[in-house]
Structures are given as C-alpha cells and as structure tokens.
Design a protein around this nucleic acid. Sequence first.
DNA 1: CTGATCTTTTGAATCGTTTCATTGTTACGA
DNA 2: TCGTAACAATGAAACGATTCAAAAGATCAG
Lengths: 348, 348
Amino acid sequence: MNRSASIKDVANQAGVAVGTVSNVLNYPDRVSQRTKERVLQAIDELGFVRNDAARQLRAGHSRTIGLIVLDVGNPFFTSVVRAAEDAAALQGSAVLLGDSGHDASRESNYIDLFQEQRVQGLLISPVGDVTSRIDQLRERGVPTVLVDRLADENKYSSVSVDDDAGGYLAARHLLDIGRRRLAFVGGPASIRQIADRLQGAERAVKEEHDATLEVLDSDGQTVLAGRSVGNMLVERGRGGLPDGIFCANDLLALGVMQSLAMTHRLRIPEDIALIGYDDIDFAVSAVVPLSSIRQPTEALGRTAIELLVEEVESDSPRHRAVIFTPELVVRQSTGAAQSTAGAPADIP
Amino acid sequence: MNRSASIKDVANQAGVAVGTVSNVLNYPDRVSQRTKERVLQAIDELGFVRNDAARQLRAGHSRTIGLIVLDVGNPFFTSVVRAAEDAAALQGSAVLLGDSGHDASRESNYIDLFQEQRVQGLLISPVGDVTSRIDQLRERGVPTVLVDRLADENKYSSVSVDDDAGGYLAARHLLDIGRRRLAFVGGPASIRQIADRLQGAERAVKEEHDATLEVLDSDGQTVLAGRSVGNMLVERGRGGLPDGIFCANDLLALGVMQSLAMTHRLRIPEDIALIGYDDIDFAVSAVVPLSSIRQPTEALGRTAIELLVEEVESDSPRHRAVIFTPELVVRQSTGAAQSTAGAPADIP
DNA sequence: CTGATCTTTTGAATCGTTTCATTGTTACGA
DNA sequence: TCGTAACAATGAAACGATTCAAAAGATCAG
C-alpha cells in the first residue's frame, strides 16, 4: 500500500472510465445513481484521496490564498487570521499562513513560496515597502490586498483601521467624564499608528477650551515602559498630575496602572482615569478592568478576503481602500459604574 | 501578460530544450556557463516562476509538512510553530499551519486538506482521540508525530513535556526557600496536564516530613479564576494561610497576585511565595515579577520535525517518544534577591 | 585522422486530474 | 417503427515540471 491510489485505479476497480470518476467527484448530478454508488465504493475500498497538485495543475491555479502577517503571536493578527480563514472557507478556499516576524527576508521568502504555489491572491501586512513587489505580483496575475496598512486607492486595495478616530474616541471619552488635564503615553512617534492616535487625541482636546494634553514619551510599548512612565508620574507628586491618561496600547496602560497601584497613593479612576488601546484579553482582567479601544479585527479579516475576491474577479485598475472605525470599550478604569465582565467589584 | 510563463516558454526564448531549463534550475553544474546565462536571462525577461503543482505532481509528494495546533493564539504553540518552521526550512521544507481551535471538525478538515496536498508528514497536537485517523494516514504513507501528547512508543512517535517533573520542580523550589505550608491552585483535575503537575508537587512535598500541600480547586485557568481563589485566601485571614502557592499556570498566579496586592495585607514573597507555570511574557512584567516553570517550546518544535524526518526515512514499525523536562525560572515572587529583567525593585 | 571518453543537450514519457467532443443508451411521441 | 431528445459514459488531450536514455559535441591520446 505504498503508492496511493489514483483516479485511474478507482476507475478500474469500479469498471468505469476515469472521466466518470472525475464527474462523481465534481459533478455528482451528471452521473447515474448506480454508477455513483459503484464509484464511491471503489473510492472507499482503495482509500482514494484526490491529488491536489494534479487538479491544480490542470486548473492553472490553486484554491488557496496566501496571508502574511507581521506576528502571529500578536492577538490582533491572530484574530484577523481566524476571520480570514473562516471567510475564505465560505467561498471554498484555504488560507496559507506565513509569519514574517517583522523580517523583510522572511516576508520575501513567503512571497516566493506563495507564488510558486500559485495562490489565488495574497493578503499581506507588509514589513517595509513592498509596492514594487506587489506590482510585479499583479503583472503575474496574483492580486494583492494590503492589511492594516492604508494605500492609495488608485493603485492598491487595502483594509485598515482609522487610528486617528481611535485616538479621538479615547480622548473624547476622558473629556466626557469630566477630565481636563489629559496625558498621552506612547512612543516613538515615528510609528505611524502611534502618531495617528496622538493626532486624534489632540483633535478631541482642542474641542474643549479648558483642556490640555501632555505628551509623555515612552520607551517602546511594553508593560515595563509603561511602568517607568507611571513611576515618573508618582514621583512628580500630587501637584501637576494629569487626571486622565490615554496610552497608545494596553500594555503601556497596564504598566502605568501597576505603578499607581503599587504606591496606593493615586486611585484609578478617582484620581486618574486610564484608557488603553487594542482591548487585549488582559485588559478585562487587570487589577482595575481597563477601558480600551477595540479594533474590528474580524471585520478586517473578512473584508480583506472580500476585497481579494473582487480583485480576482474584476480586471479594472481601480481598487478599494476600506477603513474601519474602532470602538470604545468602557470599563472601571474610566469609572464605569459596574464591572463589565464579572470582575469582582471590591476595588479599594 | 495574463498566463504566467512556463518552462517551455523559457526554453523557446533561450533557444534550448525544456530539459536544459530544468537542469539549470535543479542541477546547475550539468549545464555549461554559456547556456546557463542565456537561460537565466530568459527566466528574468519572462518573469518565470516555477509551478510547484507540476513539480509536485511529477515528484509524487510535496515539500511541505502539515502542522495542526490547538490554538495559534496560545504563546506556547506560537513558539512551537516558529521553531518547527525554522527546523523545516533548514531541511528544505515549508510548514502548512492549521489551527483547530480545540474543534474536532476543524481538525478533521485540516487533516483532509493536508492529505490532498500530499504533505510529507503531519505534526499534530490532537483535540480528541485521533489514533484511528493517524493509523489510516500511515497506511497511506503519511507519517505523523504527536505534539504535546505522550503516546505509546511502539505505535506512535511523539514529543511532550514532563508535567510531573514540572510540578515537582515548582514545589521543590518553594520547599527549598523554606516554605512548608504549600497550596496548589488549579482545576479541573480532569485535565491531564493539571493532574500531572499536582502529582509532581505532591511527590516533592512528601520528601519533607513537616511539609503540607493543600489543593485549592479553581474554576478554569484564567486570571479571574485566580483572583477568586486569592480573595478566598485573603478572607481566610492571617491564620491558616499557606506560605507558598504553586499555580497550575501563570494566569491563575497573576490573578492570585492581584487579589493579594489589592489588599496590601499579604506581601509577596515575604508572607506568601508564588510560582506559576508556562512562563508567559506577562510573568516578567507582573507587579511582582513571577517565578514560573518554562517549557522548552523551541526544542519541542525542532524535535517534532526531527522525529518526522526519521519517520519519513525509516520504515520500521518502531517509533520514539521524546519527553522534555521543563525548567525553573526564579523571579521576585519567590524571593529572588534581585530582579531579573530590569524591573524596578521598589516593591513595598 | 580515428576512436575513446567525457561533457552537454535533447525531447519524449510521465505524474493524476479535469475537460469536452464524441459515442452509446434510454425514453417517448409521432 | 423511426426520429429525436435527454441523459450517461467514454477516453484522449492538456496542464507544466522532471527524468533519463540517447544523441550530439568537445577533447585528447595515439
């Protein structure tokens, strides 16, 4: 039982022609009940499994879609991936997943691999500038959709999230609950996402004549970086402290929360309201459940597939850039009356 | 430029036979310098990319390995995946990743898909009982290695981690720093990993005549579940409290830590030493950096590929079960003198 | 110049599936 | 009974790369 059975073996076993077996597999209604049964039985007896390579060779293209993300470990991408897989499955395709890990050469390897596999199309959250590579792919008939990266609608299709709107949403929420001395924690400003979130926050603050926004640069976006910023604030003493802090992501916010909680001199949300960004799993289970901005990851993944299908089907040089708006999630760190997810309410 | 160029087009363009083009691609030394250059130039001009389906059809098998994990979002698996990808790349294969999400039907779909793709072999972290499915795969020439699941060495190859040893390591550490009234937090006991970790802890405790181990059942393995256990302990008051707690995973430990930190009546590690399991990224950046047990995920992934290669190459009915031993990571929550990763040392 | 040897190139056969024009069968109304 | 649909089944051709026996060309000793 070394070599696996082919369609020809099945045809022999069932006493029919190969075309008939193929029809049973692909167009069951074209085949009479009697033959269908015989063929199915033969398939069963021989343990026949379709050889996808042969099918694909004949078809000229595969039934797979390539997806390259920056980091599968990042919950944001994990969620996008899952949604894309489900959406692809719905229209009969499978997703090949590649993790570039922010490394341009790994990214390039995956593009090569996917091209050899003749994927129907490519979804990519690019590391650097891949425009020339994408143009080349398109010439060779592999349409591409950019994920989590806005692109010129005349040249590329893309799905992204409006970080400016997210920043606005966060700052506006702090203002709405009466805070006026706001601070933004995040850095470096060279990262587009972070700059946009800050810009949105500034926009909201400008709407209130008596509100101010202080920018606290952080060294990266980790819990530890957040904690140093928090420690710095604690040392500054009761005086010139902000009463509302917006962190560029949840990890930073958790770090800030830790340092405030450790001293027990500043209370969240009474003294300082705190909001993060991304709504990671940990946000809900922080010491004080963390308010955050949630990105519509499922919609991102689903829409990316839809745009890709559009690209596959149409041949127009016009593309679409879909921009999603993120969503505010209010929890206790900005003074929600009750906990949202069954967290104990006995915060001191 | 709709249909992509084939090897035949390249041959025409370069004025050579198709076999020669194939040789340039696969056995460059067999071809003279002059022709090689001409062919490479033609490849460049036409933008030729090898069609993997055709190659694979001829070869009878692909150069890919299927890997099905329970949850790509879980850092444990993310790390295993990355290691497996790297190991596979070293020997010229690519990894197709499938995420079953603990769902048996998704798992089954991926097995079907991978079989149609004629993967060289399959690595699987199974949802339920897949032995019959694996036997079937083997009959059809697809060797399989179980990941994170111990199996009968006479029937299957597998890579796993010794949870009993991990539990022993954790409890032994608590005993070594002088704690005697230990508690184990985790549940339900029906999960093998958890039962094994408890068993190992019990083994360690039995080695000390004056040590005790209390088992605190938790409702799942989340931060919130840990927090309820912690709250329960806090209410119990100073009296009958354990002085060392071993949690079945880091999330539980973080929850316990939170509830102790919130009251500020019980100090970590002075009053209660705390150790978790898995060494997730958050462990190092907890309020009090958390000691933990680290599983050798890279070794798991790498070894899984190695065992698979062994299976592909040999035909013997004998297999190998490789069991790894986890590793103790000491941080402040069990009283490390200094912080390990630059965390501030100003714990109250 | 011949023959032997080595290197390079050739091109038909092959892998397993799908497609589709063709042939065979059946049913039914005229 | 014949003609004509409608339906079923057939099997050769095609997809694109690799293989390998055979042919062609190059090199060199005698």
